[in-house]
Each structure stands twice: as C-alpha cells, then as structure tokens.
Simulated assay, not measured.
Amino acid sequence: MTREVKLNELTELLESASYPLSVERAQSEFSDVRLQYADGVEPLDEVLGRLEDDQFDSAEEAQSSIFNTVPVEGVGEPGQSEGEG
C-alpha cells in the first residue's frame, strides 16, 4: 500500500526511523512513500536517490537534505504566487 505524505508531514514520518540511518536503508524503509507536492507527487526513494549524503544522523538532518532536493515547483500551494500582496 502506498502512503502519500505532504511535505509538512515529513518530519513525523522521518522521526519514526532509527538513527543513524543510511540513505540506502531510508530508500528501502520508505519505498512505499510518495511525497505530495503542490504540483504532483514523487516517490520518496527517488528523492533520496538524488542526495549526495550517505547517512543521516537525525530526522532533522534527513528532512533538511530532502527539502533541499525537492523541486521548487513542488513547494507551496497550487496557484500561490510569491511576492504578491
């Protein structure tokens, strides 16, 4: 069964893992997770595959690395525009 996780729910998911956590193990552990972006979804294991990290020492470190890899178009709400208002 596939789990869809919004970016703002990623912390809770990552906190369920034991650390230190290798990227390879994270890909296996979260192979059923798809990140839900503002403009679609992407398997978390594909995002993890783009990272240069080999291991995470904490959920916060994992989240930071993942957020730095998520496409800019994926962040925010559909139709939301920055700098207006």
Rank of each mutant, 00 (worst) to 15 (best):
E52W: 04
D54H: 09
V23M: 03
E42F: 02
E24F: 01
Q27K: 13
G85A: 05
R34D: 10
V5Y: 03
L44F: 04
G74Y: 09
A38N: 11
S22L: 05
R50Q: 13
N8Y: 14
P43Q: 13
S58Q: 00
D45L: 03
D53Y: 13
Y19E: 11
G49V: 05
D53M: 12
A59S: 15
G74N: 07
G83K: 08
S58Y: 03
N68E: 15
E12M: 04
L13Q: 03
L13T: 05
Q80W: 08
E60S: 15
Q80G: 02
D57W: 04
D39T: 11
G83M: 07
Y19N: 09
Q36N: 10
E24G: 11
F67I: 15
A62G: 11
V33R: 09
V47L: 09
G85I: 05
V47P: 06
G49W: 04
R25E: 14
G85L: 13
S31P: 00
R50V: 10
E9D: 13
L35H: 04
E61F: 01
P20Y: 08
S81G: 05
Q36K: 13
F30A: 01
V33E: 08
D39Q: 08
L7T: 02
E82Q: 10
V41N: 06
V41H: 12
S64C: 09
I66H: 04
D57H: 12
T11D: 13
E9T: 03
E77L: 14
G76Y: 07
A38T: 12
Y37R: 11
F67E: 14
V47M: 14
G74A: 08
G76R: 08
S58A: 12
G76S: 14
L35C: 07
I66Y: 05
R34A: 09
P43S: 13
V33P: 06
E84Y: 00
P20K: 09
N68G: 15
V72C: 07
E12T: 11
Q36W: 05
D32H: 14
D32W: 02
V23L: 04
V70I: 15
P43R: 15
Y19C: 07
Y19R: 12
Y19P: 05
D39M: 07
Y19M: 10
V33S: 08
S18W: 04
A38M: 12
S64H: 14
F56A: 07
E29C: 01
L10I: 06
V41W: 01
S64N: 13
T69H: 06
E77Q: 11
Q55C: 15
E12I: 04
T2E: 09
E46F: 12
R3M: 07
D39Y: 06
E60G: 12
G49C: 06
G83C: 12
N8T: 10
S58L: 06
M1A: 11
T69Q: 10
A38S: 12
Q63E: 15
N8S: 10
D54R: 11
L35A: 08
E42G: 01
V72S: 11
V41S: 13
D54Q: 13
L48A: 08
D57Y: 09
E82Y: 06
A59N: 13
E60M: 13
Y37A: 06
E29G: 00
L35D: 02
S58P: 02
Q27Y: 01
S31G: 02
D39P: 04
D32E: 15
D45V: 03
E42C: 08
G83A: 14
E73P: 00
V75G: 04
